[in-house]
Amino acid sequence: MTTTHELVPLGTGELTLAEDQDDVRGMPVMDVRDHRVGEVEEILVDPEQRRARLLVVASGGVLGLAQHHRLVPVDAVSRVHGAVRLERSDLHVESGFDYDPEPPGPVDYRPVYSYFGYTPFWEDGYPDPYFLDRRWAR
């Protein structure tokens, strides 16, 4: 069974986040071992709740050429303080799912959540991750 849920890139300007502090675009991304993974280039937002659901992490390449863009659920964020810190390694992210800014049709994000070991945000009993529950500004 395929389950698709529309997510909108924040950069399109179609909507704003429910919490301004969730806009971590441009911040460096560090892994669990304190290795630099890349930088948050985009945030995919659930238009219904206006909450960040997936980060698009850009890495590699020179001057934007040959860059990789990987999807990372916000559930994988353990802390945001000067950088976005993940509960996973850079290798885990690098082996993950590519981001296609112009998909040919509806996207099923379930494999992304499964790969990282998290419950998709649309399922019953989904707990708000740290990223969406923090009470401080950067």
Rank of each mutant, 00 (worst) to 15 (best):
V84M: 01
V107G: 03
D98Y: 15
R70D: 02
D98H: 14
V84R: 03
V93M: 01
P106L: 13
Y109R: 03
E102Y: 15
G105E: 13
H68A: 13
Y99V: 06
V72P: 00
H92N: 10
Y115I: 09
S95E: 14
F97H: 15
V84A: 04
D108Q: 09
S89A: 12
G117D: 05
A83S: 13
R88K: 15
H81R: 13
V84T: 05
Q67G: 13
Y115H: 14
T119P: 04
T119F: 04
H81N: 12
A83M: 04
H69I: 07
Y113L: 00
V74F: 05
P104T: 10
W122K: 05
V107N: 02
H69M: 11
R79I: 01
D90C: 10
D90S: 14
S78L: 07
R110N: 12
P111Q: 05
A83E: 06
P101D: 04
S114V: 06
D90L: 10
V93W: 00
S114W: 02
G96N: 05
A83Q: 09
V84P: 01
H81F: 13
P103S: 12
Y118V: 02
G82V: 07
A83I: 03
V74Y: 04
V77F: 02
L86N: 00
D90Y: 09
S89N: 09
F97S: 09
V80M: 01
D75K: 06
P101R: 10
V72I: 11
D108V: 08
R85Y: 14
F121N: 02
D75T: 08
G96F: 00
W122C: 00
P106Y: 11
G96K: 04
S89C: 09
S95I: 09
V107E: 03
R88S: 12
V107F: 02
V112K: 02
S114I: 02
P103R: 11
W122S: 00
R88M: 10
P111V: 04
D75W: 02
R88Y: 10
W122I: 05
V112W: 00
T119D: 09
E87T: 14
V112D: 00
F121S: 05
P104N: 12
S95G: 13
V74W: 04
S89T: 15
